[in-house]
Amino acid sequence: MSLAAAASQGFLSPSGVEIAFVLVGIATLGAAVVSVTTKQLVHAALWLVVALGGLAVEYLLLTAEFIAWVQVLIYVGSVVVLLLFGLMLTKAPIGRSPDADSGNRWAALAVAVAAAATLVTVVIDAFRSTWLDLDGAVQGSAEVTGISLFRHWVLPFEALSVLLLAALVGAIVLSRINRGRER
């Protein structure tokens, strides 16, 4: 977080988009951190909504509009709702639960910090002098995405539909209560 904050100081011709990106990024990251550390389980899901929504804004800033809307629709609209349902169905306690984190917390922290340090070092080292050109034609409008999707990616797209169907059937089979066999 401090790194991102330092970057926001602007040592390289900070433009408006960059400033907006960094600010939203800080918010997103903060929401994510709260989401994985909060003691209240339902709050964690809600903070996740904030983090995912922040990511959708980032997509918009990167000119990928279509993906931004898909992100909002699927993640914020369905996935988080599913997660909330899951929490309720597993009788998650409402309010603060002191044992939300497992005993593995410190090991997890060490691993995560080490991974973060490594990744950030490598990424900064690799892309120190690379700029995105956001001024040209729009990269991710619904039209452009649709053309590329249905012109070049039709086959994976269709295969994905089969996968979704399989997941649907699987989820039903797994979660239904087989009363006949239990009794």
Binding site: S102, N104, A107, A108, A110, V111, A114, A115, T118
Partner: peptide, 15 residues
């Protein structure tokens, strides 16, 4: 028997 421990070790190794 704790999956998280295993996973921690695995990822630490990867790092």
């Amino acid at each position: 028997g704790n999956v998280q421990t295993y996973l921690s070790a695995l990822l630490a190794g990867a790092v």
